[in-house]
Nucleic acid binder design. Sequence first.
RNA 1: GGAAGGGUGGCAGAGUUGGUCGAUUGCGCCGGUCUUGAAAACCGGAGAUGGGCAACCAUCCGUGGGUUCGAAUCCUACCCCUUCCGCCA
Length: 429
Amino acid sequence: MLDIKRLRETPEFVRQAVQNKNERGSVDDVLELDRRRRDIIVEVEQLKNTRNVVSDDIARLKKQKLPADERIAEMRGVSDRIKTLDEELRGIEDAMRSHLLMLPNICHPSVPIGSSAADNVEQRAWIPPHTMRLNDDPEHAVLDHVELGRALDILDFDRGAKLSGSGFPLYVGKGATLERALINFMLDTHLREHGYREVFPPFVVNTESMYGTGQLPKMSEDMYRCADDDLYLIPTAEVPITNMYRDEILEASQVPSSFCGYSACFRREAGSYGKQTKGFLRVHQFNKVELVKFARPEQSYEELESLVGNVEHILQLLEIPYRVLLLCTGDTSFSSAKTYDIEVWSPAERTWLEASSCSNFEDFQARRANIRYRPDGQGTKPTLVHTLNGSGLATSRLMVSILENNQTPEGTVIVPKVLQPYTGFRMIG
RNA sequence: GGAAGGGUGGCAGAGUUGGUCGAUUGCGCCGGUCUUGAAAACCGGAGAUGGGCAACCAUCCGUGGGUUCGAAUCCUACCCCUUCCGCCA
């Protein structure tokens, strides 16, 4: 949610920023409601003041055993008027909030203006030498991850579909072990080498949490919902981890702080059928290690760079080819002010696959979720924190890249060195 | 699912014959005195949100509705927490 003051002070700037993001929300509707809101506040607060003054008067008269009927009668009309205005005010504030919730975050000035993925800017790419050799070998056809998974008996998409429907992968044998190894390796690296604190969050959350991080109201059709209990399956651990401090005021010593956490992630992916849906490319349930930071406003962009660096470090240790993209305004998500995507190479698809998205939300989520801190310790005014998060990383696309890039001409797959202590085996097949 | 108790300011914890209760008190916090310094002691200060944005005003005692001139205090619905029982792992 944007700061209403920003709309009041620089409406034209906000209008342009919304347009740059290819979003619809109306700045003018909000401003009109804001004006009406303030008019009513002035009137109703004056009335409340007289009511308070007269009520005190009545109390005094009663104490002195003097008649107060006249004053009481006087107040009847006032109270009714207050009630009417309060109702009207609440209606306006609700409307204003829902309009405000439809306005996207404003992108940082360093974000390139553009409308689609074509306008994203590649920052850098990292390619371990051995993989390219294999990719260009004409003697051996590169198998894709589905074929490899079936041949090696480690992924069973068909039975997964029998259990739950398509998009619910089933890992078996060494595939299941490799998945678990990958999760543990990433968590360990983040908490031991990158200084994150580990959390293991609930996988279902309530409505308030979904609003807090901005999944609601915009993305409701993409969420699995448990209607009986009004709970949602989390689409990412970002939701519970960021909401840990919802409606709290943090101490100065707690900011900045960094958390990493594993969760299964659930996405309905409504409306995306027909796109890349093979195997792991688009699934309804996947595993992810999420990174979340609560930062001081003046440091949040440094924190974003280090966050991206932490993700890259994982990929380098795994020896997976990747590139880093700076998303343009049109491709940057609703709540984000600046986003880097990290994509891994799939030799079988001959394309880059998004494996991580690292964003600075500035105070956009914090304002919604009401997460503040005291910048200079006890006694200072609460200020909104900046929130950041990034996938560090999602396993499904990584699994594609690991299997395809590490396949041998003999049809086996070599387990990345750093994972071998976790798997207990060096080779699949 | 059944029964009981409870939700008050950063925390703990008072306050229910409705009327200076935004709220006693303790801890914690900030400033000061004392001290070489610190602790202790003593003195003083300090909530959040909104409107003007200075004085000031309004709102906030789980949430919403109701009664009343006036509610933390009465009525009502809902939410959450704790404990016990049952059920399930």
